[in-house]
Structure formats: structure tokens, C-alpha cells
């Protein structure tokens, strides 16, 4: 069964004369282990769709099964449960400035009370090593470059071994080289851990990491979506 299975999802912001239909009958699915890039013009509803799939926004029509749970018309508790199994990467790194790299990554593990403090630090350190920051474990975000910060954010998203990673324009605030490095790290780790990635981007420079590219236009998946070479 697909990890993400979306059928007939529609979504509108606002109500009455301010109502704005953003998603119309979206259908698509993502299989386990796939890396799928979602692209499309600005305002086409990509972010909206991603927040619905991440359990951060509630849709009321259609069906969106993510990690085996129906999110359309779901309870906050169901969505919180799904959220804990997802790694999120935002355009901004959103790291806590007072915390070191390793402490920021640990934040993703503190919800898991089976781990001791030492185990959390160990795993956070290993993950930061994986993203090439072995020498920067105890640095604060202020002492890191933009690309390094985004790599800390990637480590934080992946350290709890989520089955699904949702990323929205993760390279938008990075230059070409660090953007490419960041997504390549993401791809390598996803393959190593068997994670599935759904990544929204405008950045044609990183399209090559995708197993498949789908395009959203005017709130619907366009038929010409084809597997990338």
C-alpha cells in the first residue's frame, strides 16, 4: 500500500465572498521509499497540499491516507500521532538560537522517552556526522553558515528515523552549491534509512534527485506528470 494516498482532496481558504478554492480533486500517491518532487507555479497550492498531508491543516473533502491514517476530517490526536512520524524541513531552518547543533537535533528525540539523555546525544551526534557536521556539534546556529544550518535542520528531521519526510523549498534560502549538497545529503539518508520524501520546490537545479516529478497547476495534478529519467 502507498505511504501517501490522496484521492479527490479539495481545499478552500476562507468562507463566503472571501472563499478561495485552492485544491480541486487532487489525486496522487507516493510509494514507500520514493523521492517525489512536487512542483508547479506560485500559488498553485503546493504548500497547502503539503500541510494537509503533514497533518498540520485539516481538509474536509476527499481522502488523504498518510502512514495508514486517514487525515481528512481527522481528530487533532490522530494528526499529532501522524506528525510524530514525519520529518519536516522548512524553507527556514527554524533552529533554536540558544541551543547548539546537537541540542537542536536532540529536540526531535525528546518526545521519545525510551531514550536516555546519553543515547539522544549519541544519535544526534551520529546524524550530524552523517550530514558532515561532525566538527560542529557544539556550535550554535549563529556560528554556522546558511547551508550548515539547513543541514542541522535536515539532521533534526531525520534523526527520529521518520518514514516520511516533507520538505517545502528546502533550498530556497541557500546558494546553488549548498542547496545541492543539502538535497543530496537528504537523498542519501532517505535511501539509507528507507525514508520516503515528498519535496516541494521551484528549484529546477535539484529536480535530478527525484524518482518522480508531479506538477500541480491551479489546484490539480496535471496529467503530463511523468517519471523523471
Amino acid at each position: 500500500m502507498a505511504l501517501v494516498d490522496v484521492k479527490g482532496v479539495s481545499f478552500a481558504y476562507g468562507a463566503g465572498e472571501f472563499r478561495r478554492q485552492v485544491l480541486n480533486n487532487v489525486d496522487f500517491s507516493v510509494d514507500r521509499g520514493e523521492i517525489v518532487i512536487l512542483t508547479g507555479p506560485s500559488g498553485s497550492g503546493k504548500t497547502t497540499l503539503l500541510t494537509i498531508l503533514g497533518g498540520l491543516r485539516l481538509a474536509v473533502t476527499g481522502s488523504a491516507v498518510v502512514l495508514g491514517r486517514e487525515l481528512v476530517n481527522s481528530d487533532e490526536n490522530v494528526r499529532m500521532g501522524v506528525r510524530r512520524q514525519i520529518g519536516y524541513i522548512f524553507q527556514q531552518h527554524n533552529l533554536f538560537w540558544p541551543l547548539t547543533a546537537v541540542e537542536n537535533v536532540c529536540m526531535a528525540l525528546e518526545l521519545d522517552d525510551r531514550l536516555s539523555e546519553a543515547e539522544r546525544r549519541q544519535r544526534a551526534g551520529e546524524m550530524l556526522t552523517e550530514v558532515g557536521l561532525a566538527d560542529h556539534l557544539d556550535r550554535r546556529p549563529k556560528q554556522l553558515s546558511g547551508g550548515q544550518r539547513q543541514r542541522v535542520a535536515i539532521a533534526r528531521a531525520l534523526v527520529s528515523r521518520p518514514k516520511l519526510v516533507l520538505a517545502d523549498e528546502p533550498t530556497a534560502s541557500l546558494d546553488k552549491a549548498s542547496g545541492h549538497e543539502a538535497v543530496n545529503i537528504l537523498k542519501r539518508l532517505a535511501k539509507d534509512y528507507g525514508a520516503t520524501i515528498l519535496l516541494v520546490t521551484h528549484d529546477y537545479r535539484i529536480l535530478d534527485i527525484a524518482d518522480r516529478i508531479i506538477t500541480l497547476e491551479d489546484g490539480a495534478i496535471t496529467p503530463q506528470s511523468v517519471p523523471s529519467s
Binding site: M80, G81, R83, N94, L95, L111
Partner: peptide, 9 residues
């Protein structure tokens, strides 16, 4: 940052 924590669960 707080919103990110919420997203994490």
C-alpha cells in the same frame, strides 16, 4: 521555532 516543535508533535 515553537511552530516547528508543534509540527514535530
Amino acid at each position: 521555532q515553537y511552530a516547528t516543535l508543534k509540527a514535530m508533535g
